[in-house]
Each structure stands twice: as structure tokens, then as C-alpha cells.
Design a protein around this nucleic acid. Structure first.
Lengths: 210, 210
DNA sequence: GAATAAAAGTGAACATCGTTCATGTTCTCA
DNA sequence: TGAGAACATGAACGATGTTCACTTTTATTC
């Protein structure tokens, strides 16, 4: 876990001693908690340092800037989401498309519910991306899109590869957005929106006979 | 135009003299240009003031803070989009749903293309909303949603009002997101995504027999 | 048309932020 | 055990959004 995280977030310095590695985790935990509580923008680096019981300087020993903290946290969630997809995708290789959609949407909905920090961290991550590059975000999402496109091509061989890519992009983006919207409402709203997302996706994919 | 803008953006002070009103427009124009060129975050209030050839203080005479400038600009676009919807919606009251979707999607796509500042301002606006309230954004979008829901109920009277609201919400959110995504790519990508958006929406709405 | 009040204009100064870096401390290993 | 590498520290820096005491311009009154 540690190695994967380090590689992806380009830590300013590799923590070689156990003491430093603990600090990195302390800082990340403190940052996540504060991002959830008061949001990314409102969280000062000094507050993160205080919460993690380290001086500000230690923060910049390992992370190049404040945004790197958010990226590191987002990376953790993307990684988990990708694992979730891979596992479920294998299980649902041959089921009808309606069942595939049903199970997938439910799984990702449940993931967001199970991880309290997901919404707070990701929403701030999206904000950051419009300003800066989308490197971190585009690390796992296109991977899912690629596998989804291959899945569609296997289901309906008459579809051109380019078209499969496009359909996968549309499907992913749409489900992402609607699940995201569902998180902003109460339980009833979320369940209704989940159901509606399934209707939408199933109708769309059945158009292509997959 | 001026009155509508003033009401919605809660200017700190109403510009009563012609001189001030000109200044407000100068400031807004300068802000929009800089937001497009270097982005909202990277644009300093001093830069806006310099560009508009006014001192920083004058900025805060009319706008409570930097975000108010972005909101005022976003409001202008929302207002124009709503007008566009109302007009087209009236024209398409009785056409088949596939035609309705086709014309609507094309119109909003064209709007984004015709207004160079739209993407820059709105993307920053979206960022701002996750941090602050969504008051400005929710000013016109739900209005469109409401009319869309009534439209669905008229097309298929067997649908419950609550379900019409839900369908309208899903449709709006989805089209919004996909059109937004289409702006990030080149001409070919945009055209393909526009076409795909129509397929998705038509398939979805035909499910409900509207 | 001069005097007074009200509105508008101004920019140096303030508070706070993200970040740095010179200096002190702790750990590693021959 | 001691020299060098890794790590820790927080005062200081530059930049930002914002304010407010002060000046200038416009409106009103006699």
C-alpha cells in the first residue's frame, strides 16, 4: 500500500525511517478529517499540522504542496474503486446487461456510503482538476473505461471499437454524475435516483444490443 | 438587464449614478476576460482592478467579494440559457420526443460554442459551489426542470408528478454533464458525444412513452 | 453661485494564507 | 563512538483577499 501511494503522489522525499512513515500517515489522516469537516479550501496547512501534531515544516518534507495531500487521499479511493470494479466485473461477465447494471450501480453506491470521506475528498478533487491537470483522476477511470469498452465489444461484435469506447465513456460519465448527485440528497432521494440511473443505463445499453 | 443582474447578485451598493454603472460593467468585463485567460483562482483582485482601470477599493464598493464577480457572470449565462430553453420548448411542444431531444441538445451545444466565456466561468462556478451554497446555480436549472417535468406529465398522463420530477432531474443532469464533457475535446469528439447524448436521452425518455 | 451634505473613489495597511529555509536534532553504521 | 545523512522545526517571506480612514466628485439647498 505504502509503495503504491508513494509512487503515485510523488512525495517530495521518501520516508525511509519508521518515524517518518508514521508521520506521513498522521498527516494524511489529519488532512482527510479536516477536509471532511470544513472542506479543502477552508483547511489551512497549519491546521493540518496542528491536528497531526507536527510542525508545518514536516508537511512540506513529504508533500510538495497542499494539493498533494488531496491527491494522495483521492488516489486511495480511486484504487479501492478500481479493485471493486475489477472483482465485480469478473463475476458479471455473462449475466444479462440489466443485471450487470443493477449490480454495478448498487456496488458503487454502497462504496460511497461506506466511505464517509469519499464525497468530501472527491468533490474537492474535482475542483482542483479544472484548475490543474487531471493526471491523478485519469489514472483509474480510463482503465475502467477501457475494460468496459472491451466488454461491450465482446457482447456485441458488430460494434466498432471506437464506438465501444464512446459508449463506455458516456456510460461511465453518466453513472458517475448521477451517483454523485444521489449523495447530495436524503435516503429516499438516493434510492430513487439509483433506481432511475439503472433505468437510464439499461435503456441506453439495450439500444446497442449488448 | 441591469436591474435583473443587480437583484440576483446582491451588489453591496446600488450604483445610482451613470458613472458607477459603467464601472460595474468595466469590472465585470475585466473579470470575465481574466477568468477566461488565466482562471478564477489565478486571477487576483488587483489584476481585475488594473484591467478595469479602477482601484481595488472600487471593486469592493459594488461586489462583496471576489466570488460575487463570478456569480454575477454565471448569472448572465444562466439567464441566457433559460431564455433559450423557454423559446425552443414552446416551439417543440408537439414534436416527437426524438426530435425534441435532437433540437434541444443541438441548441445548448451551440450556445456553449457561441459563448467563449461560458466554459471558463461555469467550470469555476461549479468549483465554487461545492464549497459554498448552490444558490446562484439553482436559480434557473430547477426552473427548467420544473417545466420539463410538466412537459413529461402532459405527454404521458399516467406518470405520477413525483416521477416526472425525477425523470426531469436525471435528464437535465445527464445532458448537462455530457455536453460539459464534450467541451473538453476537439470538434470530432464533441460531435460524437453530442450524437451519443441524443441516443442516450431518446432511449431513456422512450422508456416512459413520452 | 457659494455652501453644505451625500455619494463615490482611493490605495496604503491589515490579516491570513501557502511555502521556504537556516538551524538544530536524531538516527545510522563503520 | 563519532561523523555524516536523514529528519525536525518554526520564524520569516511573499502574495492574496479585504478593509477603512481619507479625498474627491456630484447633488442639493439657500
Amino acid at each position: 500500500m505504502a509503495e503504491t501511494l508513494d509512487q503515485a503522489t510523488s512525495l517530495r522525499r521518501q520516508p525511509k525511517q519508521a518515524r517518518s512513515q508514521e508521520r506521513v500517515q498522521q498527516i494524511l489522516d489529519a488532512a482527510e478529517q479536516l477536509f471532511i469537516e470544513v472542506g479543502y479550501e477552508q483547511t489551512t496547512t497549519r491546521a493540518i499540522a496542528t491536528q497531526a501534531q507536527v510542525p508545518v515544516g514536516s508537511l512540506y518534507q513529504f508533500f510538495p504542496d497542499k494539493a498533494a495531500l488531496l491527491k494522495a487521499l483521492a488516489h486511495r479511493y480511486f484504487e479501492q474503486e478500481y479493485q471493486l470494479f475489477v472483482q465485480l466485473h469478473a463475476e458479471l461477465a455473462t449475466v444479462p446487461i440489466a443485471v450487470y447494471v443493477d449490480r454495478m450501480v448498487d456496488a458503487f453506491d454502497q462504496f460511497a456510503i461506506d466511505h464517509p470521506g469519499y464525497q468530501a475528498v472527491l468533490s474537492q478533487m474535482i475542483d482542483l482538476m479544472t484548475v490543474a491537470d487531471a493526471a491523478t483522476y485519469n489514472e483509474f477511470d480510463p482503465q475502467i473505461g477501457l475494460e468496459l469498452a472491451q466488454f461491450l465489444a465482446r457482447r456485441n461484435p458488430t460494434l466498432a471499437p471506437a464506438q465501444c469506447d464512446l459508449i463506455a465513456t458516456v456510460a461511465l460519465k453518466t453513472v458517475n454524475e448521477l451517483l454523485w448527485l444521489s449523495l447530495t440528497g436524503d435516503r429516499t432521494f438516493r434510492q430513487q435516483l439509483i433506481a432511475e440511473t439503472k433505468v437510464l443505463m439499461t435503456a441506453y445499453l439495450q439500444t446497442y444490443g449488448v
